[in-house]
Amino acid sequence: MTESLRTRLSRVGQSYAPHDHRPLGGYVAAMGSFTALAASLATAAKVTGKPAPERPATADVVLLSLATHKLSRLIAKDSVTSPLRAPFMRYTEPAGAAELNEEVRDHDSTLKHGVGELISCPFCLAVWVAAGLTGGLVLAPRLTRLVATALTATAVSDFLQLAYDAAKKAAEGD
């Protein structure tokens, strides 16, 4: 009888991290989904005849970097996007600057647990967001640059707000 993939991953996960639950099945699903996303973007570029640039412009790299940072944090940490994370996460406390601290819910499903870890981690999401924005830059460059510009302006504004607050506290002697 053939051992199921789920059973095999569970057994490997137990030997991999005997004292900590690691949702390897969820991670496998996430890697498969990311591969499907990348393949879909490459296929769409080929079908539409829109080639990837030989060398991305430095301005686009900077724009997409800042936009990736902002969109990743917006999805993973922002109060307003908490309804997207709620099925997978549990609120624990405010984290300041309109962000939340949350923990992954206890799930019977390694897929739900893996999704929870993915959508609550701005570092993990950055890979997905960067892939989407980079694909958008090939497939719909004007729209992607416009969206990335708005996200970049918001990210720069966030840093300026924090710098203003720090300068204000320093001036008041706090």
Rank of each mutant, 00 (worst) to 15 (best):
S157L: 10
G25Q: 11
E117C: 02
P23W: 07
A153Q: 04
L125Q: 10
R55H: 11
H113A: 15
L118R: 08
T68D: 08
P87W: 01
V28M: 07
V61P: 01
G26T: 05
R8K: 14
A171R: 14
T81R: 01
E99Q: 11
K77E: 14
T81Q: 01
A86Q: 10
G96N: 03
V62I: 15
S157N: 11
M89K: 03
L37S: 09
L133K: 06
T149C: 09
S109K: 04
F123W: 14
D108W: 03
D106R: 14
T154E: 14
A42N: 04
L133G: 06
L63I: 07
D174Q: 12
Q14R: 15
R6Y: 02
G135E: 08
P23D: 05
L84N: 02
G135L: 04
T43E: 04
S72H: 04
A67N: 05
P53H: 09
A45G: 15
E117T: 01
C124K: 08
H113W: 04
L9G: 07
V47S: 03
V28Y: 01
L143E: 06
R22Y: 04
T144C: 11
C121K: 05
D158V: 05
D106N: 09
Y16S: 06
F34Y: 13
R85H: 06
A140F: 09
K70N: 10
A155F: 09
E103P: 00
A76T: 04
A57P: 01
G173S: 10
S15T: 13
S33Y: 05
T35V: 13
G32W: 00
V104E: 02
A67M: 07
A171H: 12
F159L: 14
T144P: 08
G25L: 11
G13S: 13
T134C: 05
F123V: 14
A163V: 03
N101M: 07
R22A: 13
R11I: 12
W128S: 09
T7P: 00
K168S: 12
A95D: 13
G114T: 04
L139V: 08
C124Q: 06
G26W: 01
D60K: 08
E172W: 07
K77T: 13
D165Q: 13
V28R: 08
H69E: 09
S120W: 01
P94I: 00
Q161R: 12
D158T: 11
H113G: 07
A98T: 05
A97V: 09
A98W: 11
A76Y: 04
L24F: 14
A171W: 08
A95L: 06
A29E: 05
A39T: 12
R11H: 14
P83I: 03
L66E: 02
F88W: 12
L41K: 02
C121D: 15
S120V: 04
M1V: 13
G96C: 08
L125N: 08
L118D: 01
V62D: 02
P141A: 03
Y16D: 07
R85M: 07
S157K: 11
H107N: 11
Q161W: 07
Q161C: 03
L151N: 06
A38H: 01
V147Q: 00
G135A: 10
H19D: 15
L5V: 13
L100E: 13
P94R: 02
L111N: 02
T154D: 15
A39I: 05
L151D: 10
A59I: 08
V156S: 08
L64M: 12
L162T: 10
E103Q: 10
P122S: 11
T7G: 00
L9H: 05
V28Q: 03
R73S: 05
